[in-house]
């Protein structure tokens, strides 16, 4: 059997993912997460004497708390496979990547396991957004100096 036939045979048995369904689920779950946060924010501002900054910090705190708790128990991976990008793109995805790499690398010891594997997934987000922000600020400063 040559390679082409083999590939055809493999393709026949691989399940094709349902793209439209995935996209719909991601839209609805991401939107629901955003609107739930917005509703909580409005309620906190109307019902409690918290300021706007405190209210949004409190909601972010709750989100990260819930995410890292569920990730360390082991439930959050199921949520991610179910709701996909709706949970990867919000702050929950960031907390999940840090927390899951921490829990997975716990066996290898404190320094070589926990410490060095902490930002193994989230490091790219921190690195590239820092670099992008730095160069964009430099561009902005140059524009300000020229004008």
């Amino acid at each position: 059997m040559n390679k082409k036939d083999y590939k055809r045979l493999v393709d026949r048995y691989i399940k094709k993912p349902n793209y439209m369904h995935n996209i719909k689920v991601a839209f609805i779950s991401g939107g629901l997460l955003g609107s739930i946060c917005e509703i909580m924010y409005k309620l906190l501002i109307y019902l409690t004497p918290l300021s706007k900054v405190e209210a949004s910090s409190l909601i972010t705190f709750l989100m990260i708390l819930i995410t890292s708790f569920f990730t360390s128990i082991g439930i959050f991976d199921k949520f991610i496979t179910k709701y996909r990008s709706g949970l990867i793109i919000p702050t929950t995805g960031f907390a999940h990547s840090v927390s899951s790499s921490l829990v997975d690398s716990k066996k290898e010891g404190l320094i070589t396991g926990l410490g060095s594997n902490m930002f193994i997934l989230a490091g790219s987000v921190v690195l590239y957004s820092t670099i992008a922000a730095f160069f964009l600020v430099i561009v902005k400063v140059i524009i300000l100096c020229l004008v």
Binding site: I23, A26, F27, I28, S29, G30, G31, L32, L33, G34, S35, C37, E38, S85, G86, I89, P90
Partner: peptide, 11 residues
């Protein structure tokens, strides 16, 4: 608005 914005970004 936040439903639409977050939903579209996730989509």
């Amino acid at each position: 608005y936040s439903f639409l914005f977050a939903g579209i970004i996730c989509m």
